[in-house]
Amino acid sequence: MNTKVAESNQDEKRAQFQARIERGEKIEADDWMPDDYRNQLIKLIAMHAVSEIMGALPEKEWVPKAPTLRRKLAIMAKVQDEVGHGQLLLRVVEDLLAPLGKTREDLFEDLFTGRLKFHNVFHMKAPTWADAGVIGWLVDGAAIITQTMSLDSSYAPYARALYRICAEEKFHAQHGESIVLELAEGTPAQRQLLQDAVNRWWPALLMFFGPPDDGTISSNQQLNMQYKIRTQTNEELRQAFFDKYVPRIFHLGLTLPDKTIRYDEAEGKWHYQQPDWEEFKQIVRGNGPRSAQRLQLRKVSYEEAKWVRDALLAKQCVAG
């Protein structure tokens, strides 16, 4: 076969694939897919997966310290779910990586070397119990908004994982709300803990959705839309977050560190103060306040357990 024929075959396959996407069909792991579709999915889902794994760590700091027996159990279950979400997403991305000869081990290597990034929020400090509440309420709230949007993803294995995840995220948000309400209804000292935590997390929450698009759409975003992997813009998601949470924050008698935030009825959108996007870049590059320490936790435990994985590999299917 000469190269011209091969190329035109390739073009035809791509066109057929795009037609499937446009018909609203779902793609499975064993379907033919263009390389850029696969790469785009890998980039998105790998980041999502390690964000769940790394996202367990800030709240985990409060797992042994949770203030009552019930809260100890609830936060353990919640953080366990986060690790479980990491597991689901890792499996999805591992299946995408398999044809490229890559495995879970490679993903962890990429995480440790900084090639694979995780969400900005999980680089931040969580110095008080109220932070655990705010993470459950607002960080999980933000996550529900982005994940719900992706339920319609053209890649069926990702959508299936997200259905499981979203069902559990509802419990997470309630878990967070319950902690937050207890503090809000509590002593002045408890309310102060909560207010401080909201102030601390606000810029990170704005950053969570990514920079606004300035009217131009990045090639990344364009590809996601073309392939129906992700269909809403960062700003649309951030606005949806404001719609849901800003009123509730005010209902609790809390304030926001942004005095300018207001809803414009005529425009139907929120005006707010932009966070420092330069700082955002620094954080996701691994220069956040807790980036190094949390990566170190993951790395130490990973290295400490190498002998365990080797031992299990030696038992590969012996008992099978």
Partner: peptide, 22 residues
């Protein structure tokens, strides 16, 4: 339900419920 990584059937069984049927 879903899939998991394990070295063999026995370990897979010991992990299955808690991963997918909590």
């Amino acid at each position: 339900q879903f899939s998991l990584l394990a070295p063999n059937h026995e370990v897979a069984l010991s992990l299955a419920r808690e991963n997918f049927l909590r």
